[in-house]
Design a protein around this nucleic acid. Sequence first.
DNA 1: ATGTAC
Length: 450
Amino acid sequence: MNCSPVVFTDAEGFKTAKADGSLRQVRNTAMLPGAVSVSAMPDIHHGYGMPIGGVLATGGSDACISPGAVGYDINCGVRYYSFNISKEDAQSFMPDLVKSLYRAVPSGVGKGGDIHLNAKEIHKLLSMGAKWSVQAGYGTEADLESVESAGRLDFADSSKVSELALKRGADQLGTLGSGNHFVEIGYIDEVYDEPTAELWGLKKGQLGMMIHTGSRGLGHQVCTDYSRSFKKAVKKYNIDIPDIQLACAPVSAQESKDYLGAMGCAANFAWANRQVIGSLALQAVSDSLGGVQSNLLYDLAHNILKFEEHNGMKLAVHRKGATRAFSAGHIELSGVYKKTGQPVIVPGDMGRCSFIMKGGEKSMELSLGSACHGAGRKLSRKEAVRNARGRNIAAELSAQGVHVMAADKMSLFEEMPEAYKDVQVVADIVSGLKISEKVVKLKPLCVIKG
DNA sequence: ATGTAC
């Protein structure tokens, strides 16, 4: 190994990481050329090459880039809006709201939306990111201040995105996708950090909306294309790696430059996508509840590669199922977030709860400014379906006061609460380490899924 | 995650 990897978890989490092979994947990741820091969060589970919940930073003369360390859903991420309305005032509208959200936001595998981008527009969008959506009328300029990196990676180069990837993305802007992607309306159930919550405009009982999705078919195709190219690069540059799924190339290699250009485009597409979905969903909320004011708290990427400076070194930081969690005072933060640390949004599962945290005081030191991104799967999709067979998950959730609609019944099986670890445990582990610290707990009221 | 296996 080129560095000593660290897994932040408890005894139970360590056991499951060993059992599902993700611990071995952590070790494999630390064997990549130029790896200077490898860590994994308590939501760690097995992924393609590198585990979900992992952070890999490479630097120095051997630094490499690995598409498998970003993953297939490039810039999968999450955003949260707070509303000026309380749970009590909104609760009775939920059965109607879930339907109007479902109508407003196209969801499901392969699903396209109402926005069709011609060649010129898609290239423009891939360069501009979230700003393209704002200029097209989805949301406001002010939103961009609450998006990580202002919703744009500047090294995006759309000439590096294949025709097939462009084609797959052309009608998927403003669509949710499937799997664990969702739009959820919920409320703040508990406040842990009053001063921060107040600075962020959050209070107990307040209604809000979380959106979780990524770059859809476009990003998936970028990863497919470049996984192929990097497998060749491994031979070409004679790189010794323990798992071909971690195929990598030197940062300076043409393959890496091309991947970074394309990955940046997929990241920008995802930010543009969440910006559009936010706008569509807010319209549905206003239609159902009648004139609601909203404020975008933050939008975070959790599958992405960025160049950051840590301890005086320029590093290629790959976060895969791990979110950025910069501490208070970080140079890349601005406004109130510079004072508090950045928001860290940690979705749980459909039935239990989620957390909004802040970048903790130890995150820079322990995990290169990174934290957990969610609960983490406990059961594989297949196991979850087996356990859910014959049950009516929507009815079970409804009995708990959570209204759910999904494009595919199977996805409710795969995504049922028991398929996930308890996010409370995950949040407590990172809180205890001061990687990220709890600000509020959210509870769901209605959810739409792909 | 994903036109859920080219």
